[in-house]
Design a protein around this nucleic acid. Structure first.
Length: 698
RNA sequence: GGGCGUAUAGCUCAGUUGGCUAGAGCGUUACAUUGACAUUGUAAAGGUCUCAGGUUCAAGUCCUGAUACGCCCACCA
């Protein structure tokens, strides 16, 4: 054995060995207990980052359970990542001086498909570099035909049960990306805005009412002015009407408790087509939806600023109001505004017909399941958070106006102007039977398919797989997607299978830099996992992400820490080397008898190790993986190596086989404890003791 | 405004049902080493465990309050 562990010599070879020998291939075996995890599918088109490296917790669980003799499955997969990928592809087009509008739908889709397929291998190889014991034999992609069929079935099931509806509602629309988003994808941004006080003259000509607004340009879409019903200042005005400035239109003054009398002037302009709250007020009071901004963010039907982008229109409107003496004053106003999480454009609330899922019955069931721990959450503190997330869920807009996604299987009957859902491409209109029906252009929100991932993957592999491995054992992911993903998997998973999609949820934290800051490209503090693997080995990176952390807490990662874990890997190797050397070099018979001191030391070692081993398994039961690792680390290095071996090394070197064999026995048990965390070095040593054909996983 | 989390060595963090003489990694200092490992070993320095009360034989740990920081959600005309 070399006097150093050279990871470069082993990692690639060992991974190939494991894969070729089929160690990662799941085997349905009714004699054994099953243990399954579905990998949260990384974006097929993007490189891995450190967040993905955190899936090492899944590998830890998988390898641990495999060593415990269970039939394990860790299923590999990839996500089409709808908007993310289309966005990247559009950038790619832009470099070539083109845009997505230069292509028809089919061509664009096919081009993106090819683009993604070209890049997909990169991500998969990176997962291999991390040493992940993934079953590649049944890998899945969110746009595989069979997966799409499952997604279609779910949508139709929901539709048939009346849980899918089409409605003209306000959506968060990005005029730059050209698509709507669900409320979860809106990025709030604080900015210093201005509150404009505008005078609306009463229609009677006597007096006026002043409204305060941050968006004067939307005034052309105003359909009312609203005050609080008990506001004394405006009692005599309720029911009267005002003339909308710059127009000839008259709109009523209404009363609604939504108004906060202390804000602004206590009078609000109501613009149902361009404001979420106003939309609700509009519904309550049955007001019109007067649309004055189009999907490009340009004004329409104003008679004054038509075709002008809303920000520029705002300036013009303000000038005109000022000219007419209707702009009373302005005031600085800190506000929070919804922006596109992808491109940063200010999102427009715009009315658009979309498909919505009524989540009410789904979330009630999900809450019940979480409350009674049918899905149990680790660490515990996330349980209440998950319940609250579910309670606050509002109906889910699943329509996206992009090409890269699963096209919604909804068809419109032209002659009757009605919709029908069909999982297969229909031959004839299912409503009138004769018309040239058309398919909805929209695609599903990526999360709609992701929400079905655990059962969709297993069902499409085989019924045998599904029956044996579902519900899956654990869903492991970052706490940041508890809302977007975990909650929806529980809702949709239970709806379709009448079983929980996973029995446990384990949430890991975010990776931060040595100063505790989030990693981001703009800060330049991003650590590339692959660079670290090249430099220190996969085991070192894996160990650094787990060592000394608290479950579910954020991980502070520095290169120093990775280096120190590399040193530990070397320690593991050298402890093995030392014991191994003495097997081959010891002169048997020189020192056959255990002396009393050694005998005592061995008993103490056995006792201590038994305690450690017991604690180790206890930690696993409680999903305390970092503690189990810290414990193994400390035992191997500071107790076993620093103390026991030091005390016993004389006897071992002079050929006492009883001492040596006991050291080897405990050491090999340590290797198994460490294997889930540092699979390469532990396997490399194991094979030194046995042969290149053996595995620690046997 | 609501919820959650965190405050412990220079830095990053552990510290399970209260038993601590408070630990680890990195960093610092001294010494050692052709002897399994310098990717090492031995040792040292470094802490009123954020603050103020309380419960207890005993509090870093439990309770109450305060302060600071972080995250999530809601509202914002």
């Amino acid at each position: 054995m070399d006097n150093k562990y050279n990871y470069k010599q082993y990692e690639e070879e060992l991974y190939t060995f494991w894969e070729q020998k089929g160690y990662f291939k799941a085997q349905v075996n009714p004699q054994k207990e099953s243990f399954s995890i579905i990998l949260p599918p990384p974006n097929a088109n993007a490189d891995l980052h450190l967040g993905h490296a955190m899936y090492v917790y899944e590998d830890v669980m998988i390898r641990y359970n495999k060593l415990r003799g269970k039939a394990v499955l860790w299923l590999a997969g990839a996500d089409h990542a709808g908007i993310e990928t289309q966005f990247v592809y559009e950038k790619h087009l832009k470099k070539k001086g083109k845009s997505r509008f230069d292509f028809d739908r089919e061509t664009l889709f096919k081009d993106i498909w090819d683009f993604v397929m070209q890049n997909r291998g990169t991500m998969e190889n990176q997962l291999r570099r991390l040493g992940f014991a993934l079953d590649w034999s049944n890998k899945k992609f969110t746009m595989d035909d069979d997966i799409v069929q499952v997604v279609y079935k779910t949508f139709k099931d929901l539709y048939d049960e009346g849980l899918v509806y089409r409605a003209n509602r306000l959506v968060n629309y990005c005029t730059s990306c050209g698509t709507s988003f669900s409320d979860l994808e809106v990025a709030d941004k604080e900015l210093k805005g201005t509150l404009y006080y505008i005078s609306y003259p009463l229609a009677s000509g006597k007096g006026h009412i002043t409204v305060a607004t941050t968006r004067p340009e939307t005034m052309f879409g105003d359909v009312a002015v609203m005050v609080h019903p008990e506001d004394k200042r405006y009692q005599d005005m309720i029911g009267k009407s005002v003339r909308l400035p710059l127009t000839e239109r008259e709109i009523p003054i209404i009363a609604d408790e939504y108004v906060d009398p202390k804000f602004g002037t206590g009078a609000v302009k109501v613009t149902p087509a361009h404001d979420f709250n106003d939309f609700e007020v509009g519904q309550r009071h049955k007001l019109d939806l007067t649309i004055v901004i189009d999907f490009a963010g340009k004004m329409q039907k104003t008679g004054i600023v038509d075709g002008i982008y809303f920000t520029k229109a705002r300036k013009i409107v303000l000038e005109k109001l000022e000219q007419e003496g209707l702009l009373e004053k302005t005031k600085d106003h800190d506000m929070v505004i919804g922006t596109c999480y992808r491109c940063g454009t200010v999102l427009q609330p715009l009315p658009k017909e979309q498909w919505f899922i009524n989540v009410q019955p789904l979330k009630e069931k999900a809450i019940e399941l979480v409350k009674k721990d049918a899905v149990s959450v680790h660490p515990k503190r996330f349980k209440s958070q998950l319940i609250r997330i579910l309670e606050n869920f509002i109906d889910w807009n699943v329509s996206r106006q992009i090409v890269w996604g699963i096209r919604i299987p909804a068809y419109k009957c032209i002659s009757k102007d009605e919709w029908f859902i069909s999982t297969d491409k229909p031959d004839a209109c299912q409503i009138c039977g004769t018309c040239n029906f058309i398919q909805d252009d929209d695609t599903f929100d990526t999360w709609f398919s992701s929400a079905q991932w655990p059962f969709a993957t297993l069902q499409t592999i085989s019924k045998k797989y599904f029956d044996y491995f579902y519900p899956t054992s654990v869903m492991e992911t970052g706490y940041d997607i508890l809302r977007a993903w975990v909650s929806r998997m529980i809702m949709i998973g239970y709806y379709e299978t009448k079983a929980v999609p996973f029995e446990h949820v384990f949430l890991h934290g975010m990776v931060r830099d040595a100063k505790g800051q989030k990693m981001s490209k703009s800060k330049g503090n991003v650590i590339n996992p692959l660079d670290m693997i090249d430099k220190y080995g996969a085991d070192a990176l894996r160990a650094a992400l787990i060592f000394g952390t608290k479950e579910g807490g954020d991980v502070v990662l520095s290169e120093d820490k990775i280096r120190s874990m590399r040193n530990f890997g070397n320690k593991v190797w050298n402890v093995g080397r030392f014991i191994y050397m003495n097997r081959t070099e010891a002169k048997q018979g020189d020192n056959e008898h255990l002396n009393e001191k050694d005998s005592k030391t061995l008993i103490s070692l056995q006792k201590e190790f038994a305690t450690v081993e017991k604690k180790y398994h206890k930690h696993f039961e409680k999903f305390e993986f970092a503690k189990a690792f810290d414990l193994s680390y400390d035992f191997l290095w500071h107790r076993f190596a620093d103390m026991y071996i030091e005390q016993l090394k004389g006897s071992m070197q002079t050929g006492n086989m009883e001492v040596r064999n006991e050291l080897e026995r405990v050491y090999k048990s340590c290797l198994k404890m460490l294997h889930p965390y540092m699979p390469f070095v532990t396997e490399a040593v194991w094979q030194q003791y046995h042969s290149r054909e053996n595995s620690i996983l046997d």
